[in-house]
């Protein structure tokens, strides 16, 4: 779809030239990209000021992040109480047109006079008739993984036979996968050294546990990684005792030696560098653990020697 600049108010008086000059020569309507609380407020202000506003969002609904929050900081106001009136206003305002489930593809022009190309994703919903009752969402058989068909093809299982055997055995031996999901993911993570998406997908298909739930666990706990990890994991302790004894210097020196940042893996795939919060060897601070081996009283000077052993 093409969002040209249709409505009135072409106050074309000036000339072209500097960008600043261009700003005062506004033509057409305004496009607000992103319909979070600030986007909505901007759209309402503009609409009340007489501009025609296209309010665009990549999500199927407007509202953004704030609609997912319980309270807001620091006043502890209820988030929905603040934003609901604005949601309704945006939906009803005659000067606002909602363009949801859409992305900006291309922008041309100068400030004050843009041409924007927008890709609208298929909703397969007649918006004129829809009342937003939500029945289709709860009834959808594949509601947890919404993917267009061509993209979904990429997610066909690409498990090797070994992986498959491992996961099958794991699931067979665990009577209560749902209750022990954490333990199952820990086993997968130990076996694969990280949590590959296709394996999670396979577990999800086999058990009916939504992929989203696994991802939410994987991103919550530090022990999991969705990225491949190196052969050896270097854990620099950033606990209090180690901090007081200067573990920060160890960490920055390791980053220099290995040429990677925290949480990253060397290009040769040998080391992954991470920080941990206390490995319980505080009396030997500063402590560094590589795989299962713990080194105590580590000095900046001694790091290279330790790394050579791996």
């Amino acid at each position: 779809m093409e969002a040209e600049s249709p409505r009135t108010d072409s106050t074309t008086t000036g000339q072209s030239g500097s960008l600043v000059a261009g700003v005062s020569n506004k033509v057409g309507s305004v496009l607000v990209v992103g319909s979070g609380i600030s986007g909505m407020q901007a759209a309402l202000d503009l609409a009340n000021g007489g501009y025609y506003v296209y309010l665009l969002d990549s999500e199927p609904a407007i509202g953004g992040l704030m609609s997912k929050l319980d309270k807001t900081f620091p006043t502890n106001d209820c988030a929905m109480c603040v934003m609901s009136p604005k949601l309704v206003d945006c939906g009803r305002h005659l000067n606002i047109e909602l363009v949801t489930y859409a992305d900006v593809k291309n922008i041309e022009g100068v400030p004050g006079n843009y041409n924007v190309e927008i890709v609208r994703k298929a909703k397969s919903v007649d918006e004129e008739k829809c009342t937003g009752c939500g029945d289709c969402v709860t009834g959808c058989p594949s509601r947890y993984v919404v993917r267009p068909p061509d993209e979904a093809a990429q997610y066909a299982p690409e498990l090797t036979a070994d992986d498959k055997d491992f996961v099958d055995r794991l699931l067979r031996e665990e009577p209560d996968v749902e209750g022990n999901l954490l333990a199952v993911l820990q086993d997968v993570s130990e076996y694969c050294r990280f949590l590959p998406e296709h394996v999670l997908k396979y577990v999800s298909d086999a058990t009916g546990i939504p992929l989203a739930r696994m991802i939410s666990i994987a991103t919550f706990y530090d022990a999991f990684s969705l990225e491949p990890r190196g052969e050896h994991t270097i854990s620099v302790c950033m606990g209090t005792a180690c901090h007081v004894k200067g573990s920060g210097l160890l960490q920055s020196r390791l980053q220099d030696i290995l040429q990677i940042g925290n949480g990253e893996t060397t290009t040769d795939g040998k080391f992954t560098l991470q920080t941990v919060r206390c490995i319980g060897c505080c009396a030997l601070a500063p402590a560094v653990r590589i795989d299962d081996e713990t080194f105590g009283f580590v000095m900046v000077r001694g790091l290279e020697k330790i790394l050579k052993r791996f």
Binding site: N180, A183, S216, Y221, D222
Partner: peptide
């Protein structure tokens, strides 16, 4: 035995229970 996965807040009793039930430890 349940093994934690590196989240300090899981030491808090209600979070610990959530985690032991296989959920996110909130």
């Amino acid at each position: 035995i349940r093994i934690g996965a590196g989240a300090f807040v899981c030491g808090e009793e209600t979070a610990l229970i959530a985690s032991a039930e296989g959920r996110v430890g909130e």
